[in-house]
């Protein structure tokens, strides 16, 4: 992965710090760095979000399209992830340099969103067996400062929360074909139910312990990281009081990145650590998104980033 060069003694410093649960920026092993999140930043997309996690900058746009469902799953919609590693992030991504990284991230996302308990594709169905929504989730990596998977999953969840699907006004059956009339009022739209959408947590093994949200320097010190996808809790994403019985967080995907290996004991503790971290992260994301939603509805939004 792209990153800076660090010396041997710096590596030793970081490894020893992690062993005693002190990290060079004062965080504990499950703390994230400060994040900056804004939604609704791209006007041509149905939903969008921009996330800045320390030096990592991710822009996600969701485009919707009407498509024919697959014959084996007539009642389900489709979702697809595309990752583009822009050469702005690091010169290494120039040409086809970032392709492998992009493929890894998009296939991890695809796997994380696979289970219906993570993301229910039924809500994308328009007319069973004939028409459904297809979501194109385009992920743009603008700056690369470590921990891409987590940042991407957070930004994707925020963008999906922000996505509005236009309501269908009328459907005309013409022979076997269906003619849909979509509402052109931007407020006549429905939101997606993304409460359970998974978040990815990367646990970087440094020395004998794992840390969450590694910086680019910390990433240099480790040879293996574990990516755990954990389903979200829908209660964090709604304001009204009809509390859904708490759903236990589940693993939606687990995979390993990097050239090293792990002992079974470390793997087990890392999975549990990941689930704890994901739960905190999900709660914080829910709060931020609800606050953001309020701001947008009062039309008092002020933007933080460079996208106005």
């Amino acid at each position: 992965m792209a990153g800076s060069l660090i010396s041997q003694s710096e590596q030793v410093f970081i490894v020893h710090g992690v062993e005693n649960d002190f990290r060079s920026d004062g965080r504990s092993s499950i703390d994230y760095r400060p994040m900056e999140l804004e939604t609704d930043v791209v006007s041509h997309a149905s939903g969008s979000a921009r996330l800045r996690l320390a030096n990592t900058d991710i822009l996600v746009g969701v485009k919707t399209e009407i498509d024919v469902p697959k014959p084996e799953t007539p009642g389900l919609g489709k979702i697809e992830f595309f990752v583009d590693c822009s050469a702005n992030a690091t010169p290494e991504f120039e040409g086809r340099g970032g392709e492998q990284l992009a493929n890894t991230i998009s296939s991890t996302m695809q796997r994380a969103y696979y289970s219906p308990q993570a993301f229910n594709l039924k809500q994308l169905c328009i007319f069973e067996g004939k028409q459904c929504w297809k979501l194109y989730v385009d992920i743009l990596i603008l700056e690369c400062g470590g921990n891409l998977c987590d940042a991407v999953s957070l930004a994707v969840k925020a963008a999906l929360f922000n996505t509005r699907l236009p309501c269908v006004k009328a459907a005309l059956m013409d022979g076997g074909n269906i003619d849909l009339q979509l509402s052109d009022d931007p407020y006549d739209s429905k939101q997606l139910d993304i409460g359970t959408a998974p978040l990815l947590v990367t646990l970087c093994k440094i020395g004998t312990k794992c840390v969450v949200d590694p910086s680019a320097e910390e990433e240099r010190c480790s040879v293996i990281s574990l990516v755990v996808g954990v389903t979200g809790n829908p209660n964090f994403y709604q304001t009204d009081d009809n509390v859904i019985p708490d759903i236990k967080c589940k693993c939606s995907t687990i995979s390993m990145n990097g050239p090293g290996s792990l002992s079974p004991k470390t793997l087990k503790s890392a999975i549990e650590q990941g689930i704890t971290a994901a739960n905190c992260l999900d709660n914080a994301l829910g709060d931020a998104l609800l606050r953001e939603k309020d701001e947008i509805s009062y039309l008092k939004k002020h933007s933080y980033g460079f996208l106005k």
Binding site: C251, M256, S261, S263, I271
Partner: peptide
């Protein structure tokens, strides 16, 4: 060496079940 070199999971599983 009792080292796990790759672990790939898809679906939706509880932690106990994974372990």
């Amino acid at each position: 060496l009792s080292q796990i070199t790759s672990f790939i999971q898809i679906g939706s599983l509880e932690t106990d079940c994974v372990i």
